[in-house]
Nucleic acid binder design. Structure first.
Length: 412
RNA sequence: GCGGGUGUUGCCAAGUGGUUAAGGCCUCGGAUUGUGGUUCCGAUAUUCGUGGGUUCGAUUCCCACCUCUCGCCCCA
């Protein structure tokens, strides 16, 4: 026998038994986002590799070691590892900066990252997210966070922790990085190898290292003074305060986490994450923030933007399983032809209906009917002879025989 | 890329260095050729993750690889 071909590492089938959970996530996204004036956008699954190298940032792990890239006709292409870069590309390419601001977009779909799979992490996974372009005011930040919270609420997730932070503008970021590096430099030799590398590549990431020795350094009074000091400029600070005011006014509970640093290079000012305690180590269900320079960076007209993305598998794992809906009607018949006709009539009338294609004997058909449907419509010899059908309600076991001409009405 | 755990049928799951690999669920057939959800009977593993090795003999012992899983890194 030939070898069985299995799903690739880190990929999964979404089976019929779990599909209603997915439908629900997608349906609620459509509802909640369109209620807030967001329109869905669908961008290609693969893009030019350069888009991600420039868009996501070539200091990131995503770009350095997690991309599914391949060559075709001398072009380097990559399966999208996230969708912000793709949406921005589309925004620029389609001249959306000419539309009245804000341009509000949402998306859902598969993303690909070559990582070691673990709880809440696959190589092919799904994200649902929003991007809003053209508003530099802090109201946009608050609107996007509000939307995230409301979406999570709509799918039944209320008790999640919202954490926010401000990275400041590129200037603040550089000043702060420099201060931090200066402060840490004397202790660097005692810190973990990862931190040694972060020190050069992305100093802000030093802040959330989990290694005890590094924590010790970070918790020292000297470093803490740097961390808690006023690290962003007045303008950025005002922006951040305003965001917090909006969130307070909207009764959104949040905490400010100075150590929250998002891994993608394009963020500035507001960044946020929404976390759950029930997810194991990959505990963020939502991550987002402001990325004012990305559109310009990718060659578009300078346009401020904010957005977030959520991991749908992680959302699903927090949600209870839902039971499959039963069919309205299963047609039991001694004649396949009659069954076909009746099923067809029922479906046209708006009932979900099915019948036994292999025309097994009566007992088997009624057994199947009781398992998959709430009602049986019986069309056997007697009924056919008298131009009637029998309707059986499995919840009460009651059965009545009605005229074939208006049985549909008897079901309503 | 690094570390820990794991792998018996569609699913759950026992088991042993010796030849018929328990049991349960699901599925299918029958008791019951017009009435199901109860009951009873019957059927379903010839790669026991894959490939090597030890042995007269391995699903059981050893090695390698792979999967899944939990962590690290990083991220949703």
């Amino acid at each position: 026998m030939t070898n069985i071909i299995k799903a690739q590492k880190g990929t999964k089938d979404i089976l019929p038994a779990e599909i209603s959970k997915w439908y629900n996530l997608e349906k609620k996204a459509e509802e909640v986002f369109s209620f807030a004036g967001f329109k869905e956008i669908r961008t290609p699954i693969f893009e030019a590799t350069e888009l991600f190298a420039r868009g996501v940032g070539d200091t990131t792990d995503i770009v350095n070691k997690e991309m599914y890239s391949f060559e075709k006709s001398e072009r380097s292409l990559t399966l999208r590892p996230e969708n912000t870069a793709g949406v921005v590309r589309s925004f620029i390419e389609n001249g959306m900066h000419r539309l009245t601001a804000p341009v509000k977009l949402w998306y859902k779909g598969p993303m690909f990252r070559y990582e070691r799979p673990q709880a809440g992490r696959q190589r092919q996974f799904h994200q649902v997210g929003v991007e809003m372009f053209g508003i530099k005011e802090p109201s946009a930040d608050a609107e996007v966070i509000l939307l995230a919270v409301n979406y999570l609420k709509s799918i039944g997730l209320c008790d999640l922790d919202v954490e926010i932070n401000s990275l400041g503008c590129p200037n603040c970021r550089e000043t702060f990085s420099k201060k931090l590096k200066d402060a840490i430099r004397p202790y660097l030799a005692n810190m973990c190898p990862d931190c040694q590398e972060r020190f050069e590549k992305n100093p802000l990431r030093l802040l959330d290292c989990k290694v005890p020795e590094c924590n010790e350094v970070l918790n020292s009074e000297e470093i803490q003074n740097v961390i808690t000091s006023e690290y962003i400029c007045d303008e950025c600070s005002e922006h951040f305060n305003k965001v917090k005011e909006y969130l307070d006014a909207l009764n959104i509970k949040y905490s400010v986490n100075r150590l929250l640093v998002r891994g993608l290079d394009y963020y500035n000012r507001t960044v946020f994450e929404i976390k759950s305690n029930n997810l194991g180590s990959q505990n963020a269900v939502c991550g987002g923030g402001r990325y004012d320079s990305l559109v310009r960076h990718l060659g578009g007209v300078d346009t401020p933007a904010v957005g977030f993305a959520m991991g749908m598998e992680r959302l699903n794992s927090l949600l209870p399983d839902v039971e499959d809906n039963k069919l309205d009607i299963f047609v039991v018949s001694s004649s396949s032809t009659e069954a076909f006709k009746v099923v067809n009539e029922l479906r046209a009338a708006g009932f979900s209906a099915d019948f036994d294609l292999s025309c097994k004997k009566f007992g088997k058909q009624i057994e199947k009917a009781s398992k998959v449907a709430s009602h049986a419509v019986i069309v056997c010899e007697d009924e056919i002879a008298n131009n009637t059908v029998s309707i059986k309600d499995f919840s009460t076991s009651e059965q009545k025989t009605v005229s074939r001409n208006d049985y549909i009405n008897c079901l309503k």
